[in-house]
């Protein structure tokens, strides 16, 4: 504030002190004739106009009901306080406050519906469409001024678009690319290695006579207990080796067979084993896999057999993987060949 000139300066901007006390709109007297302007076309209506009558047939009766509801609501609210104070109990909490809220709601709704003017009332509706002149002016403003911006500056416009394009591309990197790692081969490989022991969720190695015929257990490679992609079902279908598919003759020592537990449909754990039918069932969409036939899907939406883990029994009698899975486990994806 420059005291001599009375001009306030803020950097290089100058504010003229045009504020005159007593002339702000709030203190300005209303125009004298304001009340004579018929600014509302709405009619004055008598209190006993039929439109203002309550819809209730028996007003006294309705009022009594509403009074009853409000009392009930107060009791409900107080009841909730008491229940909470006593340590809370879900059912009682639900009942007390629920009754309270419902009663208040019913009281208000009844008040509005039965005690307030029954109407009907009407309101005029104005077209959304503007007049032809307004439309023309709007269109002209947008188009003509737009032309003004671009007149003989087409090249600048193109440069601007180019810059925006570059921004659009580079901004996608922090916004999308930073979110997570690239898939690389993570979907193609599991942590099963040649010779991996089969261990339980608790890390205990499985021995050749741990399972009875008809037994089933979930196994993992050591160190990956609980891993979602490595989970494998180990079954004992018989006492002697059997062939699930040509070329897999040695994969089932002593009747043990192991399949990936990740459903080839949408990845749920396939864990329901029916011994009589020798089938594995997925609980999510009921795909059924034939244990004796290389886990070929025989029912449901699963498109592929569950990959089979080639097994062997080592000299100490431990079950181990002969080889890792020969294909990606789980549901399909674009890069899967």
């Amino acid at each position: 504030m420059n005291r001599e000139t009375g001009v306030q300066s803020d950097g290089d901007r100058i504010y003229e002190p045009d504020y005159v006390p007593g002339h702000a709109s709030g203190d300005r007297p209303m125009p004298e004739n304001r009340d004579e302007v018929p600014d509302s076309p709405l009619p004055l209506v008598a209190l006993d106009d039929p439109h203002l009558m309550p819809a209730a047939k028996n007003v006294k009766h309705t009022e009594r009901w509403i009074a009853f509801l409000i009392v009930l609501a107060s009791l409900g609210f107080a009841g909730y306080g008491a229940v909470y104070w006593q340590g809370g109990q879900p059912q009682l909490e639900g009942l007390t406050l629920g009754i309270g809220l419902l009663s208040i709601g019913a009281a208000l709704a009844a008040w509005g519906k039965y005690l307030l003017p029954r109407g009907p009332f009407v309101e005029e509706r104005h077209d959304m469409r503007s007049s032809d002149t307004e439309r023309e002016q709007m269109a002209a403003a947008v188009i003509d001024r737009g032309k003004l911006v671009m007149r003989r500056r087409g090249f600048l416009g193109k440069m601007l678009a180019g810059a925006a394009g570059i921004l659009g591309v580079v901004i996608a990197f922090p916004v999308i690319r930073s979110l997570g790692p690239l898939p690389k081969l993570a979907l193609d490989k599991t942590n099963w290695r040649k010779g991996s022991y089969l261990v339980t969720i608790h890390g205990r190695k499985i021995k050749e006579d741990d399972l009875e015929v008809g037994g089933i257990i979930t196994v993992f490679p050591p160190g990956y207990e609980g891993n979602a992609m490595d989970q494998t079902v180990l079954l004992r279908a018989s006492t002697s080796p059997f062939t699930t598919k040509a070329g897999r003759e040695t994969w089932t020592p002593k009747g043990y067979v192991a399949y990936s537990k990740v459903c080839t449909h949408a990845g749920c754990p396939v864990g329901l084993y029916q011994e009589q039918t020798q089938q594995l069932l997925c609980p999510c969409h009921q795909s059924v896999f034939d244990v004796l036939d290389g886990a070929q899907p025989v029912f449901g939406p699963a498109p592929r057999p569950l990959p089979q883990l080639p097994l062997m029994i080592d000299s100490e009698g431990y079950l181990r993987a002969q080889q890792p899975y020969d294909q990606p486990v789980g549901p399909g994806f674009w890069e899967r060949s």
Binding site: P43, L44, V45, A46, H51, G119, F121, V122
Partner: peptide, 19 residues
Amino acid sequence: PIAVPARIGASVEDASTGG
């Protein structure tokens, strides 16, 4: 249906001049 009244008179007399 009528328009929502801007003012509501206490009695018919109040409104008799209205409209």
